[in-house]
Design a protein around this nucleic acid. Sequence first.
DNA 1: CACGTCCTTATTGGATGCAATCTGCGGCTA
DNA 2: TAGCCGCAGATTGCATCCAATAAGGACGTG
Lengths: 225, 225
Amino acid sequence: MSTRGLEVTRDIREGIAEGRYPGGFRLNEAEMAARLGVSRTPVRNALSVLAAEGLLDYTPNAGYTVHRFTVEDIEEIFRVRIELESLAARLAAENGLDPAQDAAMRESLERTAELVGRSCWNTRIREAFLPLNRSFHAAVREAARNAFLVAMIHKTNEVPLFDLIRWRRFDAELLRQSLDEHRELFDALSRRQPERAARIQAEHTYRAGRRMVQNWSRTEAAGGM
Amino acid sequence: MSTRGLEVTRDIREGIAEGRYPGGFRLNEAEMAARLGVSRTPVRNALSVLAAEGLLDYTPNAGYTVHRFTVEDIEEIFRVRIELESLAARLAAENGLDPAQDAAMRESLERTAELVGRSCWNTRIREAFLPLNRSFHAAVREAARNAFLVAMIHKTNEVPLFDLIRWRRFDAELLRQSLDEHRELFDALSRRQPERAARIQAEHTYRAGRRMVQNWSRTEAAGGM
DNA sequence: CACGTCCTTATTGGATGCAATCTGCGGCTA
DNA sequence: TAGCCGCAGATTGCATCCAATAAGGACGTG
């Protein structure tokens, strides 16, 4: 991989994450190369890297297919994720928040509160909420000050369509509940209460996993992915 | 990668794990290719995969060097590992042991007990103990029945020289203590006591991390790795 | 008509050639 | 003498070529 090779890897990874290449889809080297306007070499590199990450299935001399995640995979991943995210919250509470992290979390909370106050409800609310949600949790993980932990959490979030499916059902009630939980977690972090922070985060991630599994089953049943 | 490419990847990974390519060592494509008797292509594939795994550092147009792990890295990794291993123990206790796992753990315990009983003490004791230790913990992880969790734990164990450094200081006292802890963990698993099993495993891994950090500092100070 | 074998074809695996980029050194200049 | 420019060597990045393997179909036979 190189300047161009890194781009190719990123392109394919995003294509998988966004569902453009669904589970079971066969990725042909020559075809991908033609589509991306490069030769087979950088494509091959990208495919082997993504296969090593587990995003693709590889059989020698037969090629690469997008890994088809099952609901059991999702349950396993979230069981691990609960531990990792709650560890991050515990460490963040132990370390305390630096001013930048505190500011980022406060802003996320405020702007989410604005969304809750909106009278008209439409899908743009969800699109506004997702980045706020991400930045809030990113601040928590950053405050944990453990780069390896952050990398591991990131690996639990590389499943295709994770964010989309997880927030597929989205209504005013869910948004309000999420805000409440974030506020409680922020309070625990500010007060430097590691155990409480870990517990809140664990429950938060647990509920996220439950929603994920339900929506995932529905998506699979609809023949999609 | 292919039939040969997979071999090349494995060779280089083992070379790093065994310390043949120490931290900071520069891996030259052409040189590696000549040494392994293949062309640059499979070597390039192997290097990019290992770089994606974090075992190598990569700078475009400048090549690959073996990642130099610091004692801070080790501390971060073990902080995560404690959670993952104790989760595995908890899940194993919830699931219970199947006959094969039960047998594997019993055999590991018995043969370790034999080692403890040995009167003559030499380095061969350590070499006999390491596989027994590995198989015991492998049985625990298998009983957790969570493939994703096992893969994540494996990633926390890919640091070069991990096993060697971790067990560098090894004496009769340490062996006896390890056996006691394993017996206690096995008891908790047999009795289906998830919380107790998780606690024992967490403390076990915590102590392993402490030894690891101490030995690692000494190794670094000695200029090695 | 069914099954096995052989062959064709498409695709991957590996090797090599060439261009682009970086590094190190020597010389030049202020 | 210190700093900068430029050139030469080495190394990586990408493209292309050829061999090897697997899949699918056609054909022949029981």
